[in-house]
């Protein structure tokens, strides 16, 4: 019983900052502090007219979409290799591929910066950000897709081949439909991570900032803080919707291959 109270208090601790977002987003004052002064939707309308914001959002969406697709493709390769094949040094190779999950992000950021600027002399663009985001999103994709692939009976594809299909069409007709929910869920998670990522993007972003980099700039100007709150409210609601879809799909995928759900995606 005390444990339950503690767990609920912990959840409140987790959600406390997020709950404040809409409170200040609709508060009619430029200072982010209590007491509240009144209701307004001005901050949201300001969002609609800020051109720089729109450009950064477009940029971030572009980066996030490409990151989602690429890291999911890499994730499918790794998860499939991990679940369905035995090969030499399997554990170390998979461990190496998962390393970006625990690597301090600043290391990823500075090392890619050095390579891009000093060694390749290619300048920064959206593609430098994408390259780094694919690197850090792939382990998450692998973790999610592992759930989908490990529950797959390896004889399933062999059965399809035995019934006349080629290796590729066996994958397309049997494995792909079964792991599809995992694939969509992996793309959604990678999309969310990329859209939110700041530490690396700040180093590697080119002439056009990504949305978090743009927000970072806003945080320095007290007058623009309520707009940030409004933007945050929209972002958080969107993330929650995307994550809920990802979770529902993950569960449906588990149900489709007929296994008991054992919990989260990590």
């Amino acid at each position: 019983m005390t444990l339950r109270v503690y767990a609920i208090a912990y959840l409140i601790f987790l959600y406390a900052p997020i709950v404040l977002l809409p409170v200040f987003a609709f508060n009619d004052a430029t200072i982010i502090a209590f007491p509240l002064s009144g209701f307004t939707t001005d901050w949201f309308s300001q969002l609609l007219t800020t051109q720089a914001l729109h450009r950064s959002v477009q940029n971030s969406l572009y980066i996030a979409c490409i990151t989602a697709v690429l890291s999911t493709i890499l994730g499918v390769c790794a998860a499939r290799a991990g679940a369905m094949y035995n090969f030499p040094m399997k554990r170390s190779i998979i461990g190496l591929v998962m390393i970006p999950l625990v690597l301090p992000e600043i290391i990823v950021a500075v090392s890619l910066l050095v390579v891009a600027i000093q060694i390749l002399d290619m300048g920064l663009s959206n593609w430098t950000v994408i390259a780094a985001h694919v690197l850090i999103c792939t382990p998450f994709s692998i973790a999610i897709l592992n759930g989908a692939f490990q529950n797959l009976d390896p004889s399933m594809e062999e059965a399809a081949m035995d019934l006349g299909e080629s290796r590729w069409s066996a994958f397309r007709l049997v494995t792909l439909p079964l792991v599809m929910p995992g694939i969509v869920s992996s793309m959604l998670i990678a999309f969310t991570i990329s859209l939110d990522e700041f530490i690396i993007a700040f180093f590697l972003t080119g002439a056009n900032p990504t949305m978090p980099v743009y927000i970072w700039g806003l945080l320095r100007f007290p007058a623009s803080l309520p707009v940030v709150m409004a933007l945050g409210t929209i972002l958080v609601s969107m993330s929650i919707v995307l994550l809920t879809i990802a979770e529902i799909l993950r569960r449906r995928g588990m149900a489709r291959v007929g296994v008991k759900d054992k919990g989260g995606f990590l």
Binding site: I18, I189, D196, G232, V236, L243, E247, G263
Partner: peptide, 14 residues
Amino acid sequence: LFLITIPFWTSYLI
């Protein structure tokens, strides 16, 4: 688990 992970996925800066 879903409730625990949600805040983790929402904008870090904010």
